[in-house]
Design a protein around this nucleic acid. Structure first.
Lengths: 175, 175
DNA sequence: TGTAATTCTTGATTTCAATCAATGTTTTTG
DNA sequence: CAAAAACATTGATTGAAATCAAGAATTACA
């Protein structure tokens, strides 16, 4: 059911191609689009004074957006960058809103998506609270065993709040 | 608008009183209720092999629930415990679902609540990724300046992923 | 209200991950 | 394809927060 509705929306979506390292969204820009990743991968990160904080990865067949900008129409705090060559489809908030207004099932779909996001983020919260680097890695790998096939280590390290050196050592320990 | 709808729901909610340290929800129990806190405060935490991880606090005039249990009907991973004497109102998922089925505005309300939650959790994620204990404290205090009036330090320390000793020292530094 | 229990603070020490540094490996690109 | 650049690994050292240990302060409750 979800799937059919989603396909419906994607029919008249704009197609986008990003070369590696190109930015899809930059800090400070209002972007009220949601992107469906057809191929490739992206990362969402925050640039602080001292470091980049990696918030999320976007994989093939999933949606990505600068959430607070999409929801509130405020300037994005985040960068979204292609990790490699990436094909996307863009759906504007207006399109999405029109679909919701036209058919209540889109509202229900949006609801289910939001519920899923909240549950995911709870998992992520526990990951980040976990003291030991080894356990943090294990927890994330359990949910995303293909992580290292998709994403370069240095970004994974940042996502797990550790240095690339620590990640390298921790991986070796756990064979 | 939100407010009126909420009040409507709260009219036929069950009233609950918890003495200090009593558990509202325990790990392993399916609890599909959402609670409105009329007075007092609660904490949500996860018990791991080594430590308690503090996930969230619930204050007066806000909602709290063991989210994954509420949404998915799975056993709660979390404990919810009264930090002091606390008065709550309980709304069952069935009630809530009935309201949603009866009036689309409840679906819209639920949507808005979920959106707010997701944005909040994004803030929390950045907090937890922040390397320096001092900055973690400052970020949280900016959003919740009344934190230390409501919640004992030892729980705040756990929420900020640091020891009570470190929190004590960090507070002194920042006057 | 006074005593016990809990929580908070402060100091000394230890520990584990960050940093620094060098080398090896993979990827990019001209 | 060769050279350069970026990334990953490994080792040595440092540093910041955890732990350990008392004592002070606050809170519970008999």
């Amino acid at each position: 059911m979800e799937d059919t509705l989603l396909r419906e929306l994607l029919i008249d979506s704009r197609i986008l191609t990003l070369p590696k390292n190109e930015f899809l969204v930059k800090e400070g820009v209002v972007d009220q689009q949601i992107y469906y990743i057809e191929s490739g991968a992206v990362r969402v990160f925050l640039q602080t004074e001292f470091e980049e904080l990696t918030i999320r990865f976007g994989y093939k067949d999933s949606f990505i957006t600068s959430l607070s900008s999409f929801v509130n129409g405020t300037p994005s705090e985040f960068y979204i960058q292609a990790i490699r060559g990436t094909q996307l489809r863009a759906i504007s908030k207006q399109q999405f809103q029109a679909a919701i207004d036209a058919d209540i099932r889109y509202l229900q779909l949006y609801n289910a998506i939001l519920e899923g996001l909240v549950i995911q983020q709870l998992e992520r919260e526990v990951d980040l609270l976990t003291a030991s680097p080894t356990e943090r890695l294990q927890r994330v790998l359990k949910r995303s065993p293909q992580l290292f096939q998709e994403i370069p280590s240095k970004y994974i390290a940042s996502y797990l709040r550790m240095t690339p050196e620590t990640l390298s050592r921790v991986r070796k320990m756990n064979d």
